[in-house]
Write a protein that binds this DNA or RNA. Structure first.
Length: 922
RNA sequence: GGGCCUGUAGCUCAGUAGGUAAGAGCGUACGCCUGAUAAGCGUAAGGUCGGUAGUUCAAAUCUACCCAGGCCCA
């Protein structure tokens, strides 16, 4: 007789092979048609809210692994909060304006100069829409649930109106001002360039050394120099900026030397002395004095070309890499020059027009193109005796991406929000203190940035963005900047969109009857600058959190990469503090960046880029989700083909464990067959106890957003507690007991509780598989695992004395297992059921083991266990007691039961008594 | 160059307030099973805790410096 047909083997349609790349889209379709997201939000009625506000990704290109990581993390958090009993929702958004899109559109449009601003904006909008549609599908494919049909877009009419109104609030508060600031400028295209539009190429430039005679008497500092011709020697590669020179920067800590050359004395940094003398072709020189840079602060030189002075100032940007250590400073023509210029209250002087020509302000070279003016300026310097040396060098210099010509740095009027006005900086710092930053060092990072940041430069000389709503009087050129007018325009944007700014005349934009407050004139011109896109996304708290009834401000959490301490977190904080006096979030969580297997940045040139699409096609989105959960996102996250392969194997292990559990529940109906806790076996209680610990641990980990702890805990539980111990031992009871017997039902009851709980605990991470397995789970249940909730910790399952007993039992089991392996190596046995084991243990342990009787054999999966009480009691710790346990393995005698394969003392012909009884029962 | 952060077995993670010979899972090797079977089980081998120098009776855990890497600035 073939007894295989008489045992209860596992049976399930839940496939072993996941086929995720094919299966996931089917599940997604089902979720969508069954309106899973809507049901989840509906189920939140009456529960406390948890609001995570989505930071808008930029609507450009396909998603990359970093965007996928970000969205999956958000999804895991929202799902875990839902299952922890919160009302949740997820409103995704997109950042739509800005240079990269405009830039790409311009590239597509080619060099057609005739393109109007409106046409460009239209093309930009279409471009953004295209990528929003693409990214939306890509995000959905990851298993991210959300209100994908109603996302927020920073280019929508309502949103742009909010942007303008928020700008108006800053205006009303007096925080907005205009000031010159140097930017990259292409004189041939007559346009401002962003950093991304600048290409660095080699360029030949003049290299000149110029002396600026000291007019201050510094003999009080360096007596040796009394009555001498002392000059500060500078070096520059842009002679055309000399007319705009207002200062010379020195490093406060550097040593400067006074060098006598013929009749002159030059001041230069000691560390650059030899090099400078060599460059200037000076052989004869002598150091006659020295001092610290700091000592020279606020002394003055005479400008070599004009009747004005040049101030000696101090800055740590001065280096000993090149030059003289005395840095020619023109605040209107250099970033660092500008910053230090502000510090010393210097004029941001840039006497150069849009075409790159000197204005009439400058004598001698007025009207000349700056690069053409280099030569005449050098000649003039030579004439006045200020030119110490002149040569040419080749160096890397910024060029325009479009016309390939060298660009200039030039101060132009820009719009700012003051960090000091209304104490914005101070108040922001106070708010930062009250926010929860995860990880904790986030507070140091953002504090450092807010303390040091300059005023916020709001303006961009671009078209694809929200206009800065300001007007200029056509008569007196005075500025018209007024909250009422701004709000009027915002209303127009709300109704007709911000394009209106570009096709309507100013007269059609200002309210009727608007007059210039300076001269009473009634005609105006529009401002042409647009707002920095960080202002767009920064006001999402106003445009989204405050506008949507399902949201609220402040919300619970913002979650982005750690680069957003400078970006969105800060722009959101500043716009909210500036207008509402508080932060828009209660907590901010950051994740690290995705790097390759070696911890290095991913780059096309390195060939180490892994795209989400690749992973999905090869393994499925589920494995990507598992990857997100498996690593600690607070640090940089490594990804490589090898890591993914490992993970997909871990996935299979978890899946198989679930499948085995499902297979053994095929004939189990919890409504009818559930065995109460009081009647299940001790090992079942052990399993529940371990599971209870898991629930506790996992729920705490979710609460602290530590998903790698969730993953490791559950994986370990499935692999060790379940697969290697409980399930392996349980097979005999499940397979060989009569199908409806109390002992089998007890095992199934335990399996059911644990499996259901495992699916729930892992649903936020393995969203696809947990829901797939959920379908096969027997009994009454929610429609989807995502509509269920996390299992509760059951105080009844905790049993400290049972825990202690099983600690010992499992230690003894390890000892037995080792001996069984020895027996296998010695060819004494193959299958462990061919073994009988004699255990010799100290009395205390023997007493414990005796208590379990025949169950011990099942626990070790052998056919027989004999106990021998050790002669001497072992004193001391339980550790020592266990070390004293010995196990001896023998080949078991008797017959092999044809049904359960255990060996038994002959009696029945083919099967053991237990099996005979089981057969009778069924 | 500056600010913030990271560096424990091949991989992903644990290592409590410094204190007995540094742990887990995976992977690897070897073996068992063939009633979870493109599965399951077992045993074993892997680490001078990035490096150096300190503080201490004692450091993976504290300090300094260095190296490698990341983000943001310059």
């Amino acid at each position: 007789m073939d007894y295989k047909n008489t045992i209860n083997l596992p049976s399930t349609d839940f496939p072993m092979k996941a086929s995720l790349p094919q299966k996931e889209p089917e599940l997604l379709k089902r979720w969508e048609s069954e309106k899973l997201y809507e049901k989840i939000t509906a189920s939140g009625h009456g529960k406390p809210k948890f609001i995570l506000h989505d930071g808008p990704p930029y609507a450009n290109g396909h998603i990359h692994i970093g965007t996928a990581l970000n969205k999956i993390l958000k999804d895991i958090i929202i799902k875990s909060k839902t299952m922890s009993g919160f009302a949740t929702n997820y409103i995704p958004g997109w950042d739509c304006h800005g240079l990269p899109i405009e830039h790409n559109v311009e590239k597509q449009q080619g060099r057609a100069r005739g393109t109007s601003q409106l046409e460009t904006r239209k093309a930009c909008r279409a471009y953004a829409e295209k990528f929003i549609a693409i990214q939306r599908e890509e995000f959905k494919r990851l298993g991210v649930l959300g209100d994908w049909n109603n996302p927020y877009l920073t280019m929508s009419n309502g949103y742009t109106a909010t942007i303008v109104r928020e700008f108006g609030k800053f205006v009303a508060a007096g925080s907005v001002y205009k000031r010159k600031k140097p930017i990259q400028w292409c004189a041939s295209c007559r346009t401002a360039l962003a950093e991304a539009e600048v290409e660095y190429e080699n360029h030949r430039s003049p290299s000149i050394y110029v002396k600026f005679p000291l007019v201050s008497d510094i003999s009080t500092i360096i007596p040796q120099l009394a009555g001498k011709n002392v000059s500060v020697l500078i070096w520059t590669t842009t002679p055309w900026t000399i007319p705009a020179n207002l200062a010379i920067s020195l490093h406060p800590d550097f040593d400067y030397v006074a060098v006598a050359v013929d009749e002159d004395i030059y001041l230069i940094a000691e560390g650059l002395l030899e090099r400078t003398m060599q460059e200037c072709g000076i052989q004869q020189y002598a150091v006659i004095a020295r001092c610290k840079g700091a000592q020279l602060e606020r002394h003055s030189c005479k400008h070599p070309l004009y009747e004005r002075q040049s101030l000696l100032i101090l800055g740590t940007h001065v280096t000993l890499d090149a030059g003289t250590g005395c840095v020619h400073t023109a605040p209107g023509h250099g970033q660092e020059d500008y910053e230090i210029g502000l510090k010393y209250g210097l004029d941001i002087f840039a006497p150069v027009d849009d075409a790159g020509c000197f204005t009439a302000e400058v004598d001698h070279v007025a009207g000349q193109f700056v690069f053409d003016a280099n030569k005449p300026i050098n000649t003039m310097l030579a004439k006045s005796g200020a030119l110490v040396a002149e040569r040419e060098i080749e160096h890397s210099y910024p060029h325009c991406w479009r016309c390939k010509k060298p660009v200039i740095f030039r101060a132009t009027e820009q719009w700012f929000i003051s960090m000091e006005k209304n104490n914005l900086r101070t108040r922001a710092m106070e708010c930062i203190e009250r926010i929860q930053w995860i990880p904790r060092w986030g507070i140091d990072r953002i504090s450092g940035m807010v303390i040091n940041r300059p005023d916020w430069c709001l303006s961009r000389q671009r078209v694809w963005g929200v206009p800065i709503v300001a007007f200029y009087c056509t008569k007196c050129k005075g500025l018209l900047l007024d909250q009422k007018i701004i709000n009027h325009v915002a209303d127009l944007f709300e109704q007709e969109g911000s394009d209106i700014w570009f096709y309507r005349e100013a007269s059609q934009l200002v309210p009727n009857g608007t007059v210039c407050p300076h001269c009473g004139n009634t005609t105006f011109e529009k401002e042409t600058d647009i707002l920095d896109v960080w202002f767009d996304s920064g006001v999402s708290h106003a445009a989204v959190l405050e506008k949507r009834p399902e949201l609220e401000s402040p919300c619970d959490l913002y979650l982005e990469g750690s680069d957003q301490h400078r970006g969105w977190f800060q722009s959101s904080l500043l716009t909210c503090v500036g207008t509402r006096g508080r932060a828009p979030f209660r907590a901010v969580l950051t994740h690290g960046f995705v790097v390759d297997g070696k911890g290095e940045k991913m780059a096309k040139s390195k060939g180490n880029v892994i795209s989400p699409d690749e992973v999905i096609r090869q393994y499925g989105a589920e494995v990507l989700r598992l990857w997100v959960a498996s690593e600690n996102y607070q640090e940089d996250m490594r990804i490589s083909p090898d890591i993914l392969k490992r993970l997909s194997e871990a996935y299979r292990k978890i899946r198989n464990t679930w499948r085995f559990m499902l297979g053994n529940l095929s004939d189990f109906d919890p409504a009818k067959d559930m065995v109460p806790y009081s009647d299940i076996h001790e090992i079942d209680r052990w399993a529940l106890m371990r599971f209870n610990q898991l629930i506790r641990r996992v729920r705490a980990a979710y609460e602290q957003y530590e998903f790698h702890t969730v993953y490791h805990s559950i994986a370990n539980f499935c692999i060790t507690d379940m697969s290697a111990v409980y399930l392996d031992i349980l097979k005999d009871r499940l397979y060989c007991s009569a199908a409806g017997s109390p002992e089998r039902r007890a095992a199934q009851s335990t399996l059911y509780i644990i499996l259901k709980g495992l699916l729930e605990l892992l649903a936020p991470i393995l969203s696809f598989t947990a829901d797939e397995a959920w379908i096969y789970l027997p009994g009454e249940k929610a429609e989807s695992v995502h509509l269920s909730s996390f299992p509760e910790v059951q105080a009844a399952y905790d049993d400290p004395s049972l825990a202690e007993r099983w600690e010992t039992l499992l230690r003894v089991r390890d000892i037995v297992l080792k001996q069984l392996e020895q027996a296998r190596v010695g060819k004494l046995i193959g299958n462990s059921l061919e073994a009988a084991v004699r255990i010799t243990a100290p009395p205390a342990i023997t007493t414990l083991l005796e208590h379990y009787g025949n169950a011990l054999a099942d626990m070790f999966i052998v056919s027989r266990v004999e106990l021998t009480r050790g002669h001497t009691a072992v004193a001391g710790s339980s550790e020592k007691q266990i070390d004293a346990v010995q196990a001896a393995v023998f080949r078991v005698g008797g017959n092999k039961c044809q049904r359960c394969w255990k060996y038994y003392t002959p009696g029945n012909p083919q099967i053991c008594e237990r099996c005979a009884a089981a057969l009778q029962a069924s």
